[in-house]
Design a protein around this nucleic acid. Structure first.
Length: 242
DNA sequence: CCATTAATGTGCA
DNA sequence: TGCACATTAATGG
């Protein structure tokens, strides 16, 4: 059985799925209905590629549940993780940046629920739906800003600071409050963290172990909780963990 | 259970 | 850091 790749035209989706999300929140019920009627839904397992870098951008997507990891492959075959996208955001919106191929690969970082539309309706959406364009460009701008920040970090900060910053971003964007701290809401390995920060999994492993001793983080396999965000901020600013 | 694989941890150049 | 190897945790018979 493979429930992950079947694109279903489901028993009508409910308007409330979209009506509170920024790109659609200014629309009336009838407009949301039109949009939903054009959409396909897919339920995806963790680790499944939604689309690949360089492929023709045939569809754009809205993540309804779960997390998406955006990654690129270097010429030497190394993976680099550009960013993570939380539920409620559009992705694969190549048209918004003037492209007709996807600029990066998107893989589910957890189980995910995804809506998609054929790219040919993009211009219609922009033209007809109040707020859609401004909200999507806001999203594009935010991601651009984040990537810029990362470039500066890469060029100016020590590994320890970069990993601390990556962790802080993750808990800010995808953190879930648990007792004792804030946990990254999807499975994440040391390897993943190293691919976000330009290091090796070994270095990340050592850093996390050290921070765990200091009481800054707690981790179990594929799960990381930041237990002392304040001290992690200090580390990200170049202070010694203690 | 046991075998296999994935993830994590450690010692050393 | 980078790498080889040890250890531990998940997964599939």
């Amino acid at each position: 059985m493979n429930p992950t790749s079947a694109r279903k035209t489901l028993p009508r989706l409910d308007e409330s799925l979209l009506s509170h999300l920024p790109p659609f929140s200014r629309l009336d019920r009838r407009q949301v209905r039109e949009i939903l009627d054009l959409a396909s839904v897919r339920r995806l397992d963790e680790g499944v590629a939604v689309f690949e870098e360089g492929a023709p951008a045939e569809r754009f997507y809205m993540l309804l549940d779960g997390y998406i990891r955006v990654m690129r492959i270097t010429p030497t075959g190394e993976q680099v993780i550009a960013l993570h996208i939380p539920a409620g955001q559009l992705f694969g919106i190549a048209k918004a940046i003037g492209r007709d191929t996807y600029p990066a690969t998107s893989v589910t970082a957890s189980e995910a629920l995804v809506l998609s539309w054929p790219m040919r309706v993009w211009d219609d959406f922009v033209a007809r739906y109040e707020g859609f364009a401004t909200e999507t460009y806001k999203t594009v701008g935010q991601r651009l800003g984040e990537m810029n920040t990362r470039i500066v970090e890469m060029a100016t900060q020590q590994v320890e600071q970069r990993v601390a910053n990556a962790l802080l971003r993750l808990i800010n964007q995808t953190g879930r409050k648990v007792e004792g701290g804030i946990e990254i809401d999807f499975p994440i390995t040391r390897q993943d963290l190293s691919e976000m920060t330009g290091t090796t999994l070994h270095t990340v492993s050592r850093l996390l172990s050290g921070w765990e001793k200091d009481g800054i983080v707690a981790s179990r396999r594929k799960r990381i909780t930041v237990t002392d965000p304040h001290r992690l901020v200090l580390v990200s600013q170049g202070h010694a963990p203690r």
